[in-house]
Amino acid sequence: MSEEKLTMKQLGALTIFALIGDSIIILPSSVAGISRQDAWLSMLLVLLFGPAGCWLMLRLRRLNPSADLIQLLRAGFGRWAGGAVGLAFLYFLVLNTAAVTRELGDLLATQIMPETPIRATHLLFILVLVWGVRCGLPTIARAGEVLFPWFVLFMTALIVLLIPRIEVDRIRPIAAEGFPTILHGSIVAVVYPFAELIVFAMLWPAIRPAKKLARDFMLASLIGGIVMFLVVFISVLVLGPYLTAHQVYPTYALAKKISIGHFLERVEALLAISWMISLFFKGILYFYASLSGIARLFGLRESRALATPLATVVYGLAFAMAPNLVYFNDVGIHFWPYWDITFAYAIPLALLAALAIRGKKPSPAAR
């Protein structure tokens, strides 16, 4: 959509936004539901193994820095088989955009604006997505660069203001559930935030080449992982493992706990803004990647004209994918991780193997 390349600072901000995204809302309850008071130990394992999953995205970029995933799929699997896998990957991107839209709608409808129809929330969010992609990826990246300090400020405030509410006894006994349970919780935590960074495999051509691109990308993913560790850790320390596991939105419940001198209270609506910011950037990255992928797969020169038709599809999918919030969360916890594993890990690994068998050599790229 635009030939202007993104800077490393913009890439870092977008990586953190994409990693945190909807995870800040759903991850604490998902991990605590499995690991209970040992959820923080599961998140420690995530800090060790999560960024390692980013190696796949960087390895794909090394193959050809100017190619996106659709082009690599056709190079590895052939024109028709690669096109079929690429079409399935596009469905994955579109469905993720719809899922982010649905999550934002459910959050607002159940916690903040219960009298506002969820259809209105979805419509407004999708209109902003369409407007954003029409402005182009560089504009999206600059917006992320501007809003990122505010996001950091709100997240820091959430953690610091909750320190007086911490009770260390809530994480005891430590490792009582055993290592298999802790490992199970860490697998879910690795899949949700880190696997969905596969969206950047569609954006590599739009990023300015740099010698330390790989280092900066890995560092940004590690920072995002640390933020998620702190959110889960604070959730267990403040709410306890039971409430963390059974709250639909634990971080929103955390914000309600903030009370400084009976003066600074009821700030959850302000903190919800930071979550909406991260949801927006994750949604718009997936929406942009979907449009770019469609244009690449079908040989179109311009994809902006597809924004409105695709937005209509996303609007419909946001309702069709689940009849209610309970069903949506159940699918997200028990089935969605396998969906992410397939497209973020299994397909890229198969692609790397196919390219190796075909004798394709990686082209020089930034380290």
Rank of each mutant, 00 (worst) to 15 (best):
V31E: 08
I34C: 05
S35G: 04
R36C: 01
R36S: 06
Q37K: 12
D38F: 03
A39V: 02
W40R: 07
S42L: 01
S42H: 03
L44I: 15
L44T: 15
L47V: 03
L47H: 11
L47E: 04
L47P: 05
L48T: 08
L48E: 02
F49H: 10
W55G: 14
L56W: 01
R59W: 14
R61I: 04
L63D: 12
L63W: 06
S66F: 06
D68A: 05
I70K: 08
I70A: 06
L73E: 11
R74Y: 12
R74Q: 15
G76V: 11
F77Q: 00
A81D: 08
G82T: 10
V85R: 01
L87M: 11
A88V: 13
F89C: 11
Y91D: 10
L93C: 04
L93V: 00
L95N: 09
N96T: 15
T97P: 03
T97K: 07
T101F: 00
R102D: 02
L107H: 11
T110L: 12
E115L: 07
E115I: 01
A120Y: 02
A120E: 11
A120Q: 05
H122Y: 15
H122I: 01
H122Q: 12
F125L: 01
F125D: 00
I126R: 00
L127T: 04
V128M: 13
V128T: 13
L129A: 09
L129Q: 09
G132E: 08
V133M: 10
R134M: 10
R134S: 11
C135N: 15
T139C: 04
A141V: 03
A143N: 11
E145H: 12
W150R: 00
F151C: 12
L153F: 12
F154Q: 02
M155F: 15
A157H: 01
V160C: 03
L161E: 02
L161D: 08
I163C: 11
I163P: 09
I163N: 06
P164H: 02
P164C: 09
V168D: 08
V168N: 07
V168A: 15
R170E: 14
R170H: 15
